[in-house]
Design a protein around this nucleic acid. Structure first.
Lengths: 323, 323
DNA sequence: CCTTGCCTTGAAACGCGTTCCATAGATTAA
DNA sequence: TTAATCTATGGAACGCGTTTCAAGGCAAGG
């Protein structure tokens, strides 16, 4: 493999001059520049990026920590990151943690070991404080709201409220909700929105937890069926769960929204297909913002960027049917 | 930032010994090993991976070239790669090319510049020969069948045949197909399967091209509606397209499968939701295999690994209804 | 007692590009 | 004319871990 010293010898210049040519530095005479370029051609030189990384102390790479890459939600954020990264000439490394804490530590160590210039944390199970201890090694941007960290987020409180209020304006008062991991930051905000919005009728048994997948949704539907007092509407935390509920209910001969109104969350392809009413979230935008904060200097001020959500109307939530 | 020379000074040993301790080399006396470890603790040393990469000439990183990260199909392959990479202590860099050739060149250059140890090409638009010119810089594994390259693939010919034969066994003879990018390797194989299987009734006007998304599927449905001679069944190249067809037809008051039988391709979440009959593809398995070939030496023999597909029965294809 | 082989250790070279600092001629401003 | 800039160029140090090579010590085999 030829290196810049070979080029210098070939072009009869110093390595410094070669480096200048490679980096388009202005102080190089035309004849020398051409000589170097000729040498590059002749020897088939290709820059060793690893050496550049070591020398400059930058990798031009951003790490992304997320639990799963194949969830539409996360993939859409990745998409935003990917777009932005490409435009800026950056790379991104993805780590799938499955919410395993030791895996999350691996990712954080990678930042400390200078494998990446910064980190975007899409979702995590370690405590924020634990993660922020690694901020001394580089920027860490969260895709969730955290008051003392750089974060790009949607307001899960108001987003959930949007769904709940929509149901209330359709005259639903008996409203249930589905949550994912019950203790996550997002779930807590959602639960709070539930308690604050469905003030008198919020019931613990109408909060269905651990609902993340289509199968979980089907399970929720079966739970609902077994309840003596049932809500007339359910707001879920993901379109997948909403889909699972709807499919299982149809399977059992129930109708949506007549027997149960359902609102999804995410605004995914599934919502399009099932014509779900859903709280649409611009995930790609979140990814873009997170990336640009990670590579700018602004992260040091721990900026908070809220991304708005919108309610997208489908056919799975309509006015309460009082049989 | 403390480095191994600082450690050596602190522990009163040579940098070689420090390096040996860091790499668990056996020939180090216990007392020296402990001295080094104490120094690491005291100085808060963290290994600089970039330096390791330069020194060893390996990055322990695999690059992944794909058009989009947010397609379930690609995300599932990524998932497989991510799992395997983690297990092996590897990282992976993802490049989203949007099928733009200049972007694909960027990715290939990254291999030449030793940013990654190898490359997994999920899908591409450059010619295989052009891509293989970069094989001198490291392993390149395709997730498509290419006779002169390392490839992990599903046999699109037999997979498509599986769908077509299923329709034939339901007494359909007027069968149409949807393809994605018409000149891709996969589409050519599919078209061939169509011509070979639906021998006498294959018609050019029943080959719907450029069908990739839900919207494209809706467009196909409208084309179908406008045709004077219509097929009674359509085999698509993705569940998304199948979903688009079905939704549009329902919208227009047609029934599936009574008016048109539809079979999807991929075995995605969409298929579950819509109870699609689909050709299921184990994408994650493809990712796993591709990864393990990329990091082993076997790639030099250009191994060919075929991954089997299965027909998954839903309700969108049933016996031909002769009204 | 000598040879062979294994354990331990360190100096120095290596991988390779970037950058600081010094040098020197060419301009330009004063 | 002199001082101050600017343009060009190169030597050498730097970032930092790995690896080769040489050498000294010691035990087992002959």
């Amino acid at each position: 493999m030829t290196n810049i010293r070979d080029l210098a010898r070939e072009a009869h210049v110093s390595v410094t001059t070669v480096s200048r040519v490679l980096n388009d530095h202005p102080y190089v005479a035309d004849d020398k520049r051409q000589a170097v370029q000729a040498a590059i051609q002749k020897l088939g030189y290709i820059r060793n990026q690893t050496a550049v990384h070591l020398s400059t102390g930058q990798t031009h790479t951003i790490g992304v920590m997320l639990p799963f890459v194949d969830h539409p939600y996360h993939a859409a954020i990745l998409q935003g990151i990917a777009r932005c990264a490409f435009e800026e000439g950056y790379r991104f490394l993805t780590w799938q943690t499955n919410y395993v804490e030791s895996h999350e530590h691996t990712v954080l160590k990678a930042l400390a070991q200078r494998e990446v210039d910064g980190l975007i944390v899409v979702s995590h199970s370690l405590s924020v404080d634990e993660i922020l201890q690694y901020e001394q090694y580089g920027p860490i941007v969260f895709c969730e709201y955290h008051p003392h960290a750089s974060s790009v987020y949607i307001n899960h409180y108001t987003a959930f409220q949007k769904g709940l209020k929509a149901l209330q304006s359709l005259h639903h008062t008996k409203i249930g909700i589905c949550l994912g991991r019950p203790d996550s930051t997002n779930s807590l905000a959602r639960k709070q929105a539930y308690q604050d919005t469905v003030i008198d009728d919020a019931r613990p048994e109408w909060i269905y937890e651990q609902a993340l997948t289509i199968e979980d949704g089907a399970h929720v539907a079966r739970c609902w069926l077994n309840q003596s007092h049932r809500p007339t509407a359910i707001l879920t935390a993901s379109d997948h769960v909403a889909a699972g509920i709807i499919l299982e209910l149809r399977e059992q001969g129930y109708r949506v929204p007549e027997d149960l109104a359902v609102i999804g969350f995410d605004g995914s392809d599934l919502a399009v297909v099932l014509n779900l009413t859903t709280v649409a979230v611009p995930y790609e935008t979140i990814g873009r913002h997170a990336f640009s904060i990670a590579i700018s200097d602004s992260w040091q001020q721990h900026p908070q960027t809220e991304i708005p959500t919108t309610l997208k109307n489908g056919t799975t939530a309509s006015i309460l049917c009082t049989k």
